[in-house]
């Protein structure tokens, strides 16, 4: 499979300033060295609890935030050859000039706050196109109508304001805005969590349809595991700024290895009365990312913690093709969990 994006040891620390000179006293380690490959045409689900750095990763990839260190390689198709550019350091202007800006797009969580309330829908969708290329206004309008039709709205919605739409429709507009520049890669940051269940299904189906139609690559950030299972082909699990496990969706749900993934998956409330969940109840809360525990980040809550865990940071290792885990006990977790909580 062809790579589209490569994250190499990506780090994003937010400084905490204090004292009279506002010098940096500490930092929030939101993303602390992650390596991740995103392949063309896939939908990669990024899951984890709130505050684990999912949104930071996604915002850093589209350069809404500048990474502290690390590299982001973008593979751009240029005719038949691929050009690899490190987009983590180049300026925003250069990003625009090299035509990568339009290839990376994002859909935000809350459709009510991600649109200017004083802009017409026409202008909301036109804005990204106008910024990147020169088009006549007639051509622009026909393109906007085409985009609106794609997401299930019509030209009668052109001259309306965002507040006139329901949440689901607004999210459709946000999707239309994201695909306006013909992107290769779209970050979907919890696109359905502000929506109702019945509308959520509409949006998910729309996203699937668009992905097939335009051969898009998605990074689907969410905390809702059943949604991510439905839409993605591969899942990466994050915990406190690190990726702890990544595997193809079916494999991850069948045979999770990392204790955290196991706890996460066992806790899903499944809407089925015949399924009796046997949740692994983790004690305690996620530690603060300002002062993360030494060694394995999960060691404070892990039921199988060993001495080595709190001393040495586990590396993300491939245990089987496509399935990587960052755990010292990766080879024995299955047995340990079966011993402690019964086989699943």
């Amino acid at each position: 499979m062809q790579k589209l994006l490569e994250l190499k040891n990506l780090v994003k620390h937010y400084p905490i300033r204090g004292g009279i000179f506002r010098r940096q006293v500490n930092s929030v380690k939101a993303v602390d060295g992650i390596d991740l490959d995103i392949y063309k045409g896939e939908c990669l689900g990024l899951v984890g609890e709130s505050g684990c750095g999912k949104t930071t990763v996604s915002k850093t990839i589209v350069r809404l935030h500048d990474p502290t260190s690390g590299e982001i390689h973008f593979h751009k198709q240029n005719g038949s050859e691929t050009v690899v550019t490190d987009i983590s350091r180049i300026s925003h202007n250069a990003l625009k000039k090299s035509k990568i800006r339009g290839k990376l797009q994002m859909v935000f969580q809350d459709p009510t706050t991600s649109m200017d309330p004083r802009m017409l829908i026409k202008n909301v969708i036109a804005e990204p196109i106008k910024g990147l290329e020169k088009t006549s206004s007639r051509e622009l309008e026909s393109r906007i109508i085409e985009l609106l039709n794609l997401v299930g709205l019509s030209k009668y919605h052109l001259l309306r304001y965002p507040h006139e739409f329901s949440g689901g429709q607004r999210q459709r507009i946000a999707v239309a805005r994201a695909i306006a520049t013909k992107p290769d890669f779209i970050v979907l940051d919890e696109p359905t969590s502000a929506l109702d269940v019945s509308v959520q299904a509409q949006i998910l189906n729309l996203l699937k349809k668009l992905q097939e139609e335009f051969n898009l690559t998605y990074l689907f950030v969410t905390h809702h595991l059943l949604v991510v299972k439905y839409i993605s082909t591969r899942i990466a699990v994050m915990y406190l700024g690190k990726i702890v496990e990544s595997a193809p969706t079916d494999r991850l749900f069948e045979r999770p290895v990392h204790p955290y993934t196991n706890a996460l998956l066992s806790g899903i409330p499944v809407p089925n009365v015949n399924y009796t969940p046997r949740p692994i109840i983790l004690s305690g809360d996620v530690p603060s990312p300002i002062d993360p525990p030494p060694g394995c980040r999960f060691s404070t809550r892990c039921p199988f913690v060993k001495e080595r865990c709190s001393a040495e940071i586990p590396k993300l290792k491939e245990i089987e093709p496509g399935h990587s885990v960052a755990c010292h006990l990766a080879s024995e977790t299955e047995k340990l969990i079966a011993d402690k909580y019964g086989s699943r």
Binding site: D196, A201, N205, L226
Partner: peptide
């Protein structure tokens, strides 16, 4: 029944059923 159909299941293979229109 439509509401139940629009929630992703653990063993979801088919496309999700969605309820057309809005509340």
């Amino acid at each position: 029944s439509a509401l139940l159909g629009s929630v992703p299941k653990l063993l979801q293979k088919k496309t999700l059923q969605s309820i057309e229109g809005n509340v």
